[in-house]
């Protein structure tokens, strides 16, 4: 067990280093002068320039810049944005919002996806199954921002059940609609995955044997079919946290939520490089930690998995 955790942790180190280096290179290894971007067309005195370059480590070689960034990141210090705010403060303000949003989306997609997928698999080829397949494919086929706008229009503008935009009031009820939108695509995947898995398990030998022992259909379906079908779904959900965080870029834009997705997007558009690399680093960390947790959870769900 410990041996496994240690090995998995060791494996994540090159991933984190590589991913941050990759993003750092994409953001900073570009022609163009960030100082100019900062001041626009205004002339900058050499003294000010030197001071700024020192502040942002721009006078250092690229690799040193990256190492200095990592050194700071290790203690939670992501430096200061070009607009003068500490990046860790920006992240600290926006991350909880997105976390809440992504968490809600995940709960919604998991519960609805598993239920719909289970019944579709049980009634393979029947009306409910076909309907769910069409719904899931449609959800995947229509870009999420179109769906987002559509739902916003119906529930926010016309029915007025929820406020069309969220703004600074990130209460639970206000986030329901955005969470649904964020989770929609993953819902479709969870549904399809559960369905496939249920169909496979329905014909498993041990399921037939349980029936032969006199276990009732409903009990067999719950204890043996559904339970066994959940394992691949859990794996999917773990990897999905990263996708949801990235999807927040679009969803938060539609509903005007001050989350980390919006922060990332604005920072990219404005060339706020320190913010961009920091946010991406945080997202990579979340992804890595989530997959580690899922691996451990996977072992808890499936006793066959041994930490080797």
């Amino acid at each position: 067990m410990w041996r496994y955790i240690v090995r998995r942790l060791l494996q994540t180190i090159p991933v984190i280093l590589g991913a941050t280096l990759l993003i750092y290179a994409l953001v900073f290894l570009q022609p163009g002068d960030p100082i100019v971007a900062l001041f626009g067309e205004k002339p900058v005195s050499d003294a000010v320039r030197a001071e700024l370059e020192a502040q942002y480590n721009l006078d250092q070689p690229f690799l040193i810049q990256w190492l200095l960034f990592l050194k700071g990141a290790l203690v939670g210090d992501f430096g200061v944005s070009y607009s003068g705010q500490p990046v860790s403060e920006l992240i600290g303000r926006t991350l909880p919002v997105t976390f809440q949003l992504a968490f809600m989306a995940m709960i919604i997609e998991a519960i609805l996806g598993v239920i719909a997928g289970f019944y579709a698999g049980m009634r393979r080829g029947k009306i409910f199954d076909s309907t769910m397949l069409v719904v899931s494919l449609t959800v995947i086929a229509i870009p999420i921002f179109v769906l987002g706008f559509g739902l916003q229009l119906i529930f926010g503008v016309q029915l007025q059940w929820v406020p069309p935009t969220v703004g600074s009031d990130t209460s639970f009820t206000n986030l329901i609609l955005p969470a649904v939108v964020l989770g929609l695509v993953s819902f479709a995947y969870v549904l399809r995955l559960t369905r496939t898995s249920v169909i496979e398990n329905l014909t498993a030998d041990h399921v037939r044997t349980a029936r032969a022992h006199g276990v009732s259909d409903s009990l067999v379906n719950r204890r043996h079919v559904l339970r066994n079908s959940l394992i691949p779904v859990v794996t999917f959900l773990g990897a999905d946290l990263g996708t949801l965080m990235a999807g927040a870029v679009v969803t938060e834009g539609i509903f005007n939520i001050n989350g980390i997705g919006n922060l990332a997007y604005q920072a990219i558009l404005r060339g706020e490089n320190p913010t961009v690399v920091s946010v991406v680093t945080v997202m990579v960390l979340i992804y890595v930690v989530a997959s580690l947790l899922v691996d451990l959870l996977y072992a808890a769900l499936d006793p066959r998995i041994r930490y080797a």
Partner: peptide, 13 residues
Amino acid sequence: LVPQDPLSNLNPL
């Protein structure tokens, strides 16, 4: 019933 393949006839979970 005692089924054929002992490997696949017990629920692994």
